[in-house]
Design a protein around this nucleic acid. Structure first.
Lengths: 193, 193
DNA sequence: ACGGTAGGCCAACACCTGTTGACACACAAT
DNA sequence: ATTGTGTGTCAACAGGTGTTGGCCTACCGT
């Protein structure tokens, strides 16, 4: 819509677009998809609600843009096999605290089908791909990835969404000490007899 | 409001009250707090929306009544210490699949502060109490309960809310085989050196 | 200098929400 | 028969939602 032209040409509206996106992420993270209103997001970005529509088409479109996310998983093939679990927990903890996009996605996934689908895609594609880089049994890979996702998302859910006191207060290092071995077993271990 | 009288006297409206409550649980479980409308719940229960207000005061009041829940945790003191984890996973799986109240609560906890508080209460009070029945170190009890909650809620979130394919397809017995040892370690083990 | 266009605001639409009050019916006690 | 109360319906309110179209203004190429 916004003209062909050269794509390297910075538009004057890029700042507005970015402001909307940032405000959207904050609101979606704080309130979830349904309670985050376009009017509130526009107010945070100090522009008119109609601008949101012009730039992102609809609320769903805005969310889709705001929920773009890359887990940036490290290459597990170069990690010492005994440190896989610890590495993953540390990575997720820092990824989660540094970017509120994941919280927005997590909060919205409960009630918004599109957000749930996005979440499924991220944790299926990206995590499964990472697990399969060192995995031996391809049939087991999906299951291992699912188990890892369950513990990681449970950690995020109790720590950032529900805010269970014991999970909020605990130091990251201690979380790594407890949850690292769990992921390690999910990734490389076998189920109980 | 509804007269003093004898409390043992069954009211003619008890059936309606129950129908509203059941419809509310289904809607809250399927859609979450915000998207579940009083009109939809009333339609499911085949009554007028205003009846919901009369019997439960407000939407929040209705949710509070519909989200009443008891984990019915077994007495962990009588469970063989080596089977604590397995027992807990089995219990939660059956509790979760047999009663949609927990799903309603879980789905709503992401966006509704009241639901989050309720969830906090359940998993703090009930679970901590159960863990402390056999626990040795009282300072560690809350942390153990929190870790157990993180894995249990992560399991529920990926299996019933986000519906991650690997977690939906897996057999309950296999889930027990994988997750049981995790809870066992959270309950009775020590963190990694 | 000037005309076109991109960026932005305002006001309104159509719809849906929780909630309320007035009214109708049923049934039990008087 | 009449009263009274519990049970239920109907219609409406007031506010908030996503979304739309018209209008103004500033900038940029010519």
């Amino acid at each position: 819509m916004t003209a062909p032209a050269r794509s390297t040409q910075p538009r004057r509206s890029d700042a507005t677009r970015a402001a909307i996106l940032q405000a959207a992420r904050e609101r979606f993270a704080a309130d979830g998809y349904e309670r985050a209103t376009i009017r509130a997001i526009a107010a945070d970005a100090r522009i008119d609600p109609s601008m949101v529509m012009r730039y992102y088409g609809s609320k769903e479109g805005l969310f889709a843009a705001a929920a773009e996310f890359d887990l940036r998983l490290p290459d597990l093939a170069v990690v010492p096999p005994a440190q896989l679990g610890e590495t993953l927990v540390r990575h997720f903890l820092s990824r989660w605290e540094g970017d509120e996009t994941l919280v927005a996605l997590l909060r919205s996934a409960s009630t918004n089908p599109g957000a749930a689908e996005r979440m499924r895609g991220i944790f299926t594609d990206q995590l499964t791909a990472a697990v399969s880089t060192f995995g031996t049994d391809p049939a087991m890979t999906a299951r291992r990835a699912g188990l890892v996702a369950s513990q990681i998302l449970g950690l995020a859910f109790t720590r950032y969404i529900v805010r269970l006191p014991p999970m909020v207060d605990v130091e990251p290092d201690e979380l790594v000490a407890w949850i690292g071995p769990t992921l390690q077993r999910y990734l490389t271990g076998q189920p109980e007899a």
